[in-house]
Write a protein that binds this DNA or RNA. Structure first.
Lengths: 144, 144
DNA sequence: AGCTAATTGCAACTTAGTTGCACTATTAAA
DNA sequence: TTTAATAGTGCAACTAAGTTGCAATTAGCT
């Protein structure tokens, strides 16, 4: 694990334990990337970051198990590749729920906005909500 | 155009004119499908609906030009195929902006929720919003 | 140390979406 | 109404995302 700084290595092991995931090389490295970068990442972004040292399929499967255990969640995006972000806020250690994202039309960077809860629309009778995704699009501070 | 009912044919021609799109067979048929079904559709859904009478590529390109001219817009979705919906409300004839959608986890149907505007999160300095996407996930009345 | 179930890599696949090019149809203007 | 320019279509071939099956490997137990 020479690629991880010591601080993150501890955090990474704790998180994998906490979410009931076996501690393997790929998982430690990918989780490290999520912690270091704090924006939504695609499979492609990760592959680049870990310099293709692990198989494509393995990375896809890693994302699946992380999502299944609730460690990451899919962030909706109008590109044609799925984006994922950590479900735990590194600062507060709290689970993040339904926080909105902002995607820049020019640089395509996806930013996490505040974690404050939003007033969501009311649903018709019989409809039950489990999850919400909010994406704003426009120009970020660098591109506007 | 034997596949269109007369009512829709008039509407379809008007809309294509209004959005500066040439009136071709594929476009009339695809627009008809959007008007008839009133939920978000994938390329695959459309291909099925028009019984493969037009080429895949043509349908993709039709979606692109509709989107470019603002007749349809992409509806965010966590499936791995893009979904599109009409940008005009057939009843009010008004452009629809930022209305939320609901996707059922079981039947995967995507519903349009009310068109009422929502309170959106405040943005950091220098950020400018152009579009918003809101997707709620859960169980619909039929599946809950 | 040794067992078992979970994880990995590889090859081969499916499906979404794109590109280039030759051909055809729509439209606007003569 | 013919025609010329331009936009749209079909085909073939491609890229890129994501999946599946299987054999080899490894983490996490006792």
């Amino acid at each position: 694990m020479i690629y991880l700084c010591h601080m993150n290595e501890i955090k990474v092991n704790e998180l994998l334990d906490k979410y009931g995931l076996r501690k393997t090389e790929v998982r430690k490295e990918i989780l490290d990337v999520f912690i270091t970068q704090n924006h939504a990442l695609t499979h492609h972004d990760l592959q680049e970051r870990i310099r293709d040292r692990f198989d494509r399929v393995t990375v896809f499967r890693t994302l699946s198990s992380f999502e299944e255990k609730g460690l990451i969640h899919q962030v909706l995006d109008n590109s044609n590749a799925a984006k994922y972000a950590l479900s735990v806020d590194e600062k507060s250690q709290l689970e993040v729920s339904a926080h909105p994202h902002f995607k820049c039309e020019d640089c395509h960077q996806t930013y996490c906005l505040s974690e404050e809860e939003l007033a969501l629309p009311s649903l018709p009778d019989g409809f039950i909500m489990n999850k919400s995704h909010i994406l704003l699009e426009g120009k970020c501070a660098h591109c506007s």
